[in-house]
Amino acid sequence: MDNKRIDQIIDKHRGEASSLIQILLDIQSENHWLPKEALGRVSEKLEVPLSRTMHIASFYKAFSLVPKGRHAVHICMGTACHVRGAKRILETVEELTGLKPGETDVEMKYSLETVNCLGCCALGPVIEINGKAHGKVSVSDTSGVLEHYK
């Protein structure tokens, strides 16, 4: 992500320091992660100390300080999904992608993450990819679900 695009996002929020989190969220959703250069640029333009920007960027789980893949795969490990076999779903996804939770593959295709409840327990076990929930998945379904996302 280049500085020009970052400046555009900052201008969209009228360069106000109070919009720091919104600006970071916009960069995060476009770029999938917050590179150091982007944080530096935002700090400079908004006149917010870099230590403060770092504090905020490392505080919220919505932000990532490491590169993320094109598709964010979230596997629900909440109680309802757990009793319906979320653990086996996770193991299958781990095997298919070769990733452990928190990791991203070299082709930057998937980033695997576990979550503790997505709030749609009736659909369990749930895999959420790029914000879209895939409910009642079975072990045999998982590869089909993943193949939707290239």
Binding site: L50, M54, S58
Partner: peptide, 21 residues
């Protein structure tokens, strides 16, 4: 100067120097 700040949260919260500053 803001050369040192907090990073992360909860039980992982720690202080960290900003190398550039």
């Amino acid at each position: 100067l803001n050369a040192v700040g907090f990073v992360d949260r909860g039980i992982n919260k720690e202080i960290s120097f900003i190398p550039e500053i």
